[in-house]
Design a binder for these strands. Structure first.
Length: 722
DNA sequence: GACCTGCTGCGGCGTG
């Protein structure tokens, strides 16, 4: 039977109404997979490739044709990582469900309470919900889970790659297990994504206990043409990047004007700088404004204005951060520009997927890299052109179709604390045994063994922490502090957010900035693509009043250090000793790459991994990504060295250490125990870390950011190449 | 050396 014939009548009618001649190959495959068996599925296809329909046309058909007495509740559940995405998908699915008696219910923080209340009283049809809102249902309506989801056929997880091994992804996977435990039956899982690395690992993430049964449906490559350019720029080298910024802005202005584009500028401060330059250029040329900034600190109103403008058909370029990376509907984009080296190939691929979506149109990626002009006392980091070489490395990996796989070893203890509190709240109390089974044996925390789990429970129940307490019968209950935490609405999200000021002009909020910016009345600011002067500060309300001004500098937004995968660094080292010049480099980029290779050889890294670059100062070519590099750095610091991190290299100052560097490396290679100075290692980076003991924090860090057990291997590899 | 994501229940007030 053809895929079309397998679908329910109303769905066939909808397809004809759309004017589709036929289903795409992967959509037909998905229809067969859903209708013929009950396996979990991963549907991998390009952005806007019709994944939503591929999953929902057959799933809705099944709901319509099932004549089994329903257990009640929502028939299908869709999980989306963004409110905007849920709103988009609600509209699309309402189109399909228009003629059939199946409600489509969006459920997130912006949905009015009365709509949620009505859906809760009469749960049926399609529920579209965020992980956090689902969490809130478990915490506040624990006793109703069976009634709400007892008859649910499948859970569809959109943008699966963002909900994979992030803290948020672990939370969602825990909620899915808890859903199955509470309803007493398995619920089919369907993951949708355009950007997945290792498919076997991804399957194991979707269904840990039965990864081999997860079926993969992949769209063939669209075959769209890819146009690629990497432009190199050399700055003054004395810290004045103004001229280079103007050059890049000038090139963007010339090439992007008149069409729709996305410029990923790297961070919020750079977004403000480039948006300001481009606005000034438009104004002095007496041209209508086409360039607008877009990032998370800007007010919702301003962001929606830019998104609407992109959809409107008038030429618009958004200068943005990763806010415009995910699948919300912003219409067709001609070109994607990337300023500076990105942090992951996955993000680069996701960004590139934003352009060339219309048939016959090429995908266009323009990359801009700035390197410092060299002088006799330039640093090794500048000489090696690390930014340019990393960008080339990542572009090569992108072209080969590689992207970062999930990290399966992490313990995720912060999120485990959250889920322990959530289950206790859901059920009004839980035994240690039940928590361990739900979370560590059947749930996603499978790398947490019984010893660690008990240590964690004891820590949470200790006098200082007091999040939980034990009743005389052994049941674990929320302690006073735990209850307070769980009762507040800020509990539902597992990620933390910094404190911020709100910027207000004439009673209207224009956005937020972190509280660690030093601002006094009179300070001039660039923000939201405009210039402002601070009039008043209200410390307690965290409000800053501003008025328009003629000049200013952008605020600092801060951020976490990046996480670079080993494969990217290994490819960088291959590039240093290769002669091949990639065709997508412009003249300056070719010169910079050639220079980098000459310096690599001149410094001696072709022959040895350790080069002495000054009195007591050495550069080690570790050839490691951030995890390996950080591990070796902490070990060297514990031996009295001062260390600085670079991509694939460490800069080591041995003037204050007792041991010679090579002897220290030899000790590491022989497996000598290392006493890391954990107190100075800043181990609290997740929301529930403040409730963990130093020992548990160490364990958590060693499972994700550091790998102490790999130290001998890292040191040996360096010593083998001297 | 970075980015992003999310959020309930209820009390008080104004309006029809």
């Amino acid at each position: 039977m053809s895929a079309f014939d397998q679908l329910a009548r109303p769905i066939q009618k909808w397809i004809r109404g759309q004017g589709w001649k036929e289903l795409r190959k992967f959509q037909s495959d998905a229809v067969h997979a859903v209708m013929d068996a009950s396996n979990d599925l991963i549907i991998a296809a390009a952005t806007a490739g019709g994944k939503t329909e591929a999953a929902f046309l057959p799933l809705i058909s099944q709901v319509l044709e099932s004549d089994v007495a329903k257990a009640g509740g929502f028939d299908l559940v869709y999980i989306g990582p963004l409110k905007a995405l849920i709103n988009d998908q609600t509209r699309r699915l309402e189109g399909i469900c228009d003629s059939i008696d199946l409600p489509v219910v969006p459920w997130h923080g912006d949905i009015p309470a009365n709509i949620k209340e009505r859906a809760r009283r009469n749960p049926r049809g399609l529920l579209l919900i965020t992980p956090e809102s689902l969490e809130s249902l478990f915490v506040r309506r624990g006793m109703e889970i069976q009634r709400l989801f007892g008859g649910t056929n499948a859970v569809v997880i959109d943008e699966l790659h963002t909900l994979l091994d992030s803290e948020r992804g672990i939370q969602l996977r825990s909620l899915l297990t808890r859903l199955e435990l509470a309803t007493g039956h398995g619920i089919r899982r369907v993951g949708l994504s355009a950007t997945l690395g290792d498919m076997e690992l991804t399957k194991a993430y979707l269904r840990p206990e039965d990864a081999s049964a997860v079926k993969l449906i992949k769209a063939e490559h669209s075959g769209a043409e890819l146009r690629l350019q990497l432009r190199g720029y050399v700055s003054g080298g004395d810290g004045d990047d103004g001229a280079t910024t103007r050059q890049i802005a000038g090139h963007l202005f010339e090439k992007l004007r008149g069409s729709n584009n996305l410029v990923f500028a790297g961070n919020r401060q750079q977004v403000e700088i480039y948006a300001d330059r481009l606005r000034v250029m438009s104004e002095s040329a007496h041209l209508p404004q086409e360039f607008f900034p877009h990032h998370a600190s800007l007010s919702k109103g301003h962001r929606e204005f830019v998104e609407d403008k992109l959809k409107s058909g008038n030429p618009t370029t958004a200068v943005c951060t990763s806010t415009l990376e995910l699948g919300i509907d912003i219409g067709d984009v001609t070109c994607v520009a990337q300023i500076g080296a990105p942090f992951s190939v996955a993000a680069l691929r996701q960004r590139l997927g934003r352009s060339g979506r219309r048939a016959g149109q090429p995908a266009i990626l323009r990359q801009y890299v700035i390197e410092a002009g060299l002088s006799s006392n330039s640093s090794i980091a500048d000489r090696l052109r690390l930014g340019l070489v990393r960008t080339v490395s990542m572009t090569e990996l992108l072209l080969e179709g590689w992207c970062e796989p999930p990290k399966p070893h992490s313990l995720h203890l912060s999120t485990l604390v959250h889920q322990i509190l959530s289950i206790i709240a859901e059920r009004g109390g839980a035994s240690a045994q039940r928590l361990f089974v739900s979370l560590c044996q059947r749930g996603p925390f499978r790398t947490v063994d019984q010893t660690i789990f008990l240590a964690l429970l004891r820590n949470l129940g200790s006098h200082d922490v007091a999040l939980i307490e034990q009743a005389p019968d052994g049941m674990l209950l929320l302690g006073e502090k735990g209850e307070k935490l769980v009762e507040h609405y800020s509990f539902y999200a597992v990620f933390s957010t910094p404190e911020e000021y709100r910027l207000v002009c004439d009673g209207k909020e224009i956005g937020t900035i972190p509280v660690d910016n030093i601002l006094v009345p009179g300070t001039l600011l660039i923000f939201s693509g405009r210039r402002w002067q601070v009039i008043e500060l209200h410390e307690t309300e965290k409000i800053i009043l501003v008025k328009p001004a003629e000049a200013g500098i952008p605020p600092k937004f801060g951020g976490d250090p990046g996480d670079i995968h080993d494969c990217i660094i290994q490819r960088m080292f291959m590039l240093y000793v290769d002669d091949n010049i990639p065709v997508y480099l412009d003249k300056t980029a070719v010169e910079l790459l050639t220079e980098a290779r000459a310096q690599f050889e001149h410094l001696g890294f072709e022959r040895t991994s350790v080069v002495e670059t000054g009195e007591g100062i050495s550069w080690i070519a570790t050839r490691q990504g951030s995890v390996g590099n950080l591990t070796l750095m902490l070990a060297l610091q514990s031996a009295g060295f001062k260390v600085q991190l670079h991509d694939g290299f460490l800069e080591v100052d041995g003037r204050k250490s007792e041991l010679p560097l090579l002897q220290a490396l030899q000790n590491f290679a022989e497996g000598e125990a290392v006493t890391v100075d954990w107190d100075n290692a800043n181990l609290m980076f997740e929301k529930f870390h403040p409730y963990l003991s130093t020992q548990l924090l160490e364990l958590d860090a060693c499972s994700s950011r550091i790998e102490i057990e790999r130290l001998p291997q890292i040191a040996n590899a360096i010593l083998a190449n001297l």
